[in-house]
Amino acid sequence: MDLQELYDELREMDITDPLCMDKVFAYYDEINREVDEYMQVLVQKLSHAIITWDQPWYQLTSQITRNKIENREGMPKFLLDPLTKDECELIKKNWRKLVKKFHIPDKLTCFAQWKNKTQCRRVSAEENVRRFINSYLARGLKRTIPQVHQYVVNQIAYPPKGRYTEDEEKVMEICFYHNPHKAVQISARVLNRGPRGILQKFYEAINGKPENSRIKWNISLATQFIKLLMEYTGESLEGLLNKHFPISVWREVASHFGTQAHYLRHFWYTSLHCQLFVKYDVTLRRVRRRVFKILRRSPYKYWTDIRWKEVSAQFPRGFTFQFLYRITVRIFRKGRIHIKLPLEEVVNIGLQITNNKKYGNKRLKTLVLNEQGHLEVIQYSQKL
């Protein structure tokens, strides 16, 4: 049985019918059996395999699930930022080499989904094989074994898929109704989805989906927002510059506006922070041009390689990387070409759109807190 067949069988059934859960369990057991059988094949093929290539010092660890390694002074450095697209392609290329060299079935998803739950983590044959494979996948990378393992689990075992379909939501409802204690675990394996999103769905099923109240911001509400943020953080206005606040602060402030904490946090970092701390006459067109020129000179090859904090570091104080990302990606949202093309082409297209006179050229409305403690609009003479 494949997943589509399971969907077809469940579509006309009531979720309260115990037979629904039996069908889900049957498919769940089938997946687990396939994963376990594949691991036994790997043990037979690779149980005596040894590492014959030179490894950097940071890949010599026996730990594959936790990255406790730190860069050492005087030793070769390894990278700490997310993997680039080229690095991801190299991992997949190493896997294809491994499959060809040792004549193993090409089932990277099964390898990524296997978990060592019952045996000693460091001495079992399965764990030794898993450590060897992750070491092989890390060849040619300035990455630790735990970093490569994390990529394999997050992107191969449970790849991002976008919104849940009606069939997927029904499978989750069946699991939540019949087996709530293991609903997340079963749903994640059956749907090939990450557990975090399913856990959020489980939470919403119990407590209801919170309302995402949008606020029509004005000077008065923004003033109230700033005063509450200063009150709950104990900071002055200047102390809020480039600060990271715990979620508890955002929840306290959100309770006064009847909205969610993440909405206010998004508003702060993508809008109000720049309006308060950028001391220039800024138009969005000039900002976008500067972003694209920075990206043109950068070593990034694809949009997903961009480190927006590095981009924001080349702007004056007050600019946030969230603001720069938001106003830049907005011009590509219709066709999402920015994630489909090489960055060089994306930059050229972005500059053409930005320089088009028909495209909007809004000015950033800069604000200042006056002596009476109220925000007011201010215009700066110096241009960015």
Score class of each variant (00 low, 15 high):
His256Tyr: 05
Asn207Gly: 11
Ile226Asn: 10
Pro210Phe: 04
Gln224Trp: 00
Val249Gln: 04
Gly197Leu: 09
Ile198His: 01
Glu252Thr: 10
Asn192Leu: 10
Ser236His: 02
Lys227His: 14
Arg251Cys: 07
Ile219Trp: 05
Pro210Thr: 02
Arg193Gly: 07
Ser213Thr: 15
Pro246Ser: 01
Leu221Asn: 10
Asn218Gln: 06
Val190Ile: 06
Lys209Gln: 12
His256Asn: 07
Tyr232Phe: 13
Ile215Gln: 09
Asn207Lys: 13
Asn192Ile: 11
Glu238Gly: 07
Ile247Trp: 04
Val190Asp: 00
Lys216Ala: 14
Phe202Ala: 15
Lys227Thr: 10
Leu228Met: 11
Phe245Pro: 04
Ser187Leu: 04
Asn212Gln: 14
Glu235His: 04
Glu252Ser: 08
Gly258His: 03
Leu229Ile: 00
Gly258Asp: 05
Arg189Asn: 01
Glu238Phe: 06
Glu231Met: 02
Tyr232Glu: 08
Lys209Asn: 11
Leu229Asp: 00
Glu238Tyr: 00
Ser248Cys: 03
Ala222Ser: 15
Val253Leu: 02
Ser220Thr: 15
Ile219Pro: 01
Leu191Val: 11
Leu191Lys: 11
Ser187Arg: 07
Leu241Phe: 03
Ala222Asn: 15
Leu228Ala: 00
Asn242Met: 10
Ser255Pro: 01
Glu231Cys: 08
Phe257Met: 00
Leu199Met: 13
Gly194Gln: 13
Arg214Trp: 12
Lys243Ala: 07
Asn207Met: 10
Ala205Arg: 15
Asn242His: 14
Asn207Ala: 09
Phe245Arg: 04
Val253Glu: 02
Val253Asn: 06
Asn192Cys: 09
Pro195Arg: 05
Thr233Met: 04
Arg214Gly: 11
Ile198Lys: 08
Val190Thr: 00
Pro246Asn: 00
Lys216Cys: 07
Gln200Phe: 09
His244Arg: 13
Tyr203Phe: 14
Asn212Gly: 08
Pro195Asn: 02
Gly239Ser: 05
His256Ser: 01
Phe225Lys: 01
Leu240Gln: 03
Ile198Trp: 01
Gln200Arg: 13
Phe202His: 15
Trp217Glu: 10
Ser187Ile: 06
Ile247Pro: 06
Asn218Phe: 04
Glu252Arg: 07
Leu228Ser: 09
Arg189Tyr: 00
Gly258Trp: 01
Gln200Ser: 10
Phe202Thr: 15
Glu252Asn: 10
Gln200Met: 10
His256Thr: 02
Pro195Ala: 06
Ser236Glu: 02
Ser255Phe: 02
Ser255Ile: 02
Trp217Arg: 08
